[in-house]
Design a protein around this nucleic acid. Structure first.
Lengths: 369, 369
DNA sequence: TGCGTTGCTGTAAACGTTTACGGATGGGAT
DNA sequence: ATCCCATCCGTAAACGTTTACAGCAACGCA
């Protein structure tokens, strides 16, 4: 792995100074003859500029980091999928941090900004602690947070409105005649957990349905936990006729348990998930799910960050992405689901719904490998 | 965003030279008193070392890139999931390149190594052209290729054995009494496409089954394409009793089409996918799939790269990952699938199977938000 | 007293760029 | 012939580190 040529090598080779080489390579006005000699030397030597040196001088790395809990989660994945091309088009490389939802890790990432290995950061914390707020305030590079953050935090913020999201789902279930609507949540001390719990109560209120503790079970955002929670629910309240699940994984667990228990979905129990991930369309019956616009949130975050990178002193901005309900078989049955078309399980190239189309891509391009 | 303190600021603040500061911060032997003053100043000023400057001097970036066609593909995702923690544990950051399976893009990434923004690269090309081989030979940093590459390429290589993989699937189907086993492939000019096509012929041979052109359909590796291909197949050869699909997405498309056509899976038609992605366990009926060990391949690649980074002049090494068959309901029916347990649709935290467990993680940790 | 050690520190060069500044050259105007 | 200006280019400094080297002080020993 021979040491590559530098601007110096080229200068010697072309018989000019390094300043001239740099000028030519950066397209600054230079005498024709010099340009030719430099380009020829560069070509011959296979010169490639060293981005580290360039970064040191220019104070820009052309890299942006995305930090989330776990890249394995389809929600974050949908975001990465949108973020990547946006950044790439603007000339940025994307760096990935999986924090395992570990608060200390998240803070490390924020502090790490001081190392200047990226120009900016998109982060999606599961919990927002005091530590987060002060680290955000002290951050040495622009940060965009996905997930609600207090007004005063001074960072660009992309939110979703889980209140409305849960509301959409419950209205839908109510409209289908369901009255015993249970709720399976993830940990209450996470941002989404807390928001969704509150949203559930409010939505019940709005529908004049009573809040029944027996109908609420708290577990974790995983499939196995979802299954466990649903088993507990069925034991306790056998008469539930609908399940509102705080994310799609929980809902998938629910489908398994219901199947085993011999309850038909949706005839006996309707199931709604949340996040509208790829999995929702693949499940059987296909899963009605509240889309919180992961793709749109990802794109918005990337765009906010790019804007901020070009215009450092703007006021922090808050973008809110409206939820939508993707109606599928788990609430209206397979037959009817077909008619909703758009969201149906069949025919679409495995994408999660809105994001891809909004981005102006075709289903074909969106398809996976 | 005030300019952060540098080693110079600290030196002035502590009344010592920058060399001393550097020594203290790097733990080189220094007088007690100096150490204290430097650390104190660093603390007070909130000093964070600039990684760009450090990289320039040390010629190491502590970054590694992973280049694949599309991060949205669950196969690559499974790899990222394994690669990330391995690299992270060794102190490397992970950079992601989505190349959209574009040959020019892939070559750009290889040439980009000359910019030295990463110490190494893990790449998984969909096609391997002459251009790839020469770019690999000229690469300015260590590269590990996932996917077969000719012996002479001079790079570390992680392979799978799709021959055996397809063989496992066909043996399984044959064992279940299936004799009209169709094959739905992706583009023949891709590395996996070509390999799987050849493997199908061989496996038929080994089973003494005739090769029937009518039973082969070529489309693309997407779900919609899979659906289209299967419709064509059914029109042409209504008597198929098994479908070997070249990846899980195709298989999902197949499940949809079969359901619509009123063919029961697996009673009328058994379906096998390939790659054993997360989706296989979620589908209904859950999908029997050939695991090509994406997770294991990812980990192996990361380990090869790390090894090479520490030991640059080693001979290139080839690691081959053995395929396995994950038997689920789409071939043996839901009842029997339960008994295979391990691979069943229920209970596991949405992971793709082997990878997570091999890595010594628990299902809980693995789970998706 | 002088010299060699030892232990610590500071100076300066280096990594590979970009860029401010000034010097050289040549042409046109006076 | 002189002066001015424009054009092009080279020198050198700077970005923030690491590190080779040399200097210095204190000390032990002859």
């Amino acid at each position: 792995m021979a040491e590559g040529p530098t601007i110096n090598t080229i200068a010697r080779h072309a018989g000019v100074s390094i300043a001239s080489v740099s000028r030519v390579l950066n397209g600054l006005p230079t005498r024709e003859e010099t340009v030719r000699r430099v380009l020829r030397a560069a070509e011959e030597l296979g010169y490639v500029p060293n981005s580290v040196a360039r970064s040191l001088k220019s104070r820009r790395t052309n890299q942006v980091a995305f930090a989330m809990a776990d890249i394995g989660n389809p929600v974050y994945l949908a975001m990465v999928r949108e973020i990547q091309p946006v950044l790439r088009a603007a000339g940025y490389r994307l760096l990935l941090h999986s924090t395992d939802a570990d608060v200390a890790d998240e803070l490390d990432v924020l502090r790490g900004l001081g190392e200047r290995y990226v120009d900016g950061l998109i982060m999606i914390p599961l919990r927002v602690t005091e530590g987060h707020l002060s680290a955000l305030a002290a951050a040495r590079a622009p940060v965009v947070v996905i997930g609600s953050v207090p007004e005063g935090a001074g960072v660009d913020n992309v939110r979703t409105d889980s209140r409305t999201g849960v509301r959409l789902a419950l209205d839908h279930l109510y409209g289908l005649g369901r009255r015993r609507i249970a709720f399976v949540n993830g940990p209450a001390d996470t941002v989404p957990g807390a928001a969704r719990a509150a949203a559930y109560r409010e939505a019940l209120d709005a529908l004049d349905l009573p809040y029944d503790e027996d109908l609420v079970e708290v577990g974790d955002f995983y499939r196995a936990e979802g299954a466990r929670a649903v088993r507990a629910l069925l034991d306790r309240a056998g008469d539930v006729d609908a399940l509102m699940c705080a994310n799609d994984l929980i809902a998938l667990g629910a489908l398994d348990v219901l199947r085993r228990a011999g309850r038909r979905v949706p005839e006996d129990v309707a199931v709604v998930g949340m996040d509208d991930t790829d999995l929702a369309a693949v499940a059987w019956p296909s899963l009605t799910s509240v889309s919180l616009g992961s793709a749109r949130r990802g794109r918005a975050a990337a765009e906010l960050l790019l804007d901020r990178l070009e215009n450092g002193e703007r006021e922090p901005r808050v973008v809110t992405v409206e939820p939508r309900l993707a109606v599928r078989a788990s609430t209206v049955g397979a037959r009817a689901a077909e008619e909703y078309g758009e969201n149906g399980a069949a025919g679409e190239a495995g994408d999660g719904g809105e994001g891809a189309r909004e981005a102006g891509r075709t289903a074909g391009e969106e398809g996976i490998r």
